[in-house]
Amino acid sequence: MFTRLFTNSRLLVVALAILAAAPSFAGSWHHENGTLELDERPQRIVALNWAATEALLLLGVTPVGVADLAGYSYWVAEPSLPESGVHNVGTRVAPSLEAIAELKPDLIVTSAEMAPAADLLEQIAPTYVVSVYRKGSQPFNQALSMLTTLGQILDREERAQAVIDDIEQTLARLRARLANAGVTERPVALVNFLDDRHVRIYAPNGLFQTALDALGLTNAWPHDGNFWGFSVVGLEAIAPFPDARLVVLSPTPPGLSENLTDSPFWTHFPPVQRDQVYQVDAVWPFGGVFPVKRLALQITDSLLAGGSNLVQ
């Protein structure tokens, strides 16, 4: 009987220990500015850049505060923020520390760009610093690791994996569609028009390259850009790539299409003469993993639908 009691109580202790362990949540994660130690799963999270905001939303976690709320809804759009319940904490360059503190967050996600404010942020809440974009980084891999780490921190590892799987499957499906249609041969130049003389061209070291690679497309632009993955170039700089197809990301500046159709430089540009200009909706080039899927979908649809000789 004693033995039995002893066994029972030992079982009880074990059971209690398991019970206690299950909701308790502890962990530590190394990040770019030190180590993040957490005893509990964070509930109130503030994201100070849009890549982090996107990652949280992909994990099904609605942050309590994000930087430049209105800008996110305009420029990033997908995954969308809920209409209400999320607070704006100021610009991405200089967020309001007081607004962040007022939200009483238990986790702040930011990047090395906020380095001068790192100590002040740490005073408010544990801060997780991860930069998708910095010198020498591979944006997509960084974004993937940000997503999986945030998945661990927020106890949503399966969700993170599901998002990644979905993106991979979508990309594979799109690649097959393009291959079947036989439209992967010509290289693609991805540009944003800044005015009628200058474009931002997306470089092989940027996030968008991942989408091109996954679709089996070649980037017409051979040079690395800045660490954000683009170069600002004159329109004439794409002239040496007459074999390319031109994918133009919206939005375009007003009056662009008239100015271009008036310009013989443009009308003689071989891609234009071949009707191989493809305009796609705005995609945020400095986000996390999601813009890759969004861009790939749009490029595929647009390439399959056929191009034109002008931009809107």
């Binding site: 003389r197 004159g234 004439e236 430089f265």
Partner: peptide, 25 residues
Amino acid sequence: LLLKGEWLGNLFIWGAGSLMQNNWQ
């Protein structure tokens, strides 16, 4: 520029001067 920078990409170039041309106009 600080509050609306995303909308003013062209001004960043314009502020530094560029003589790039693609037309005689």
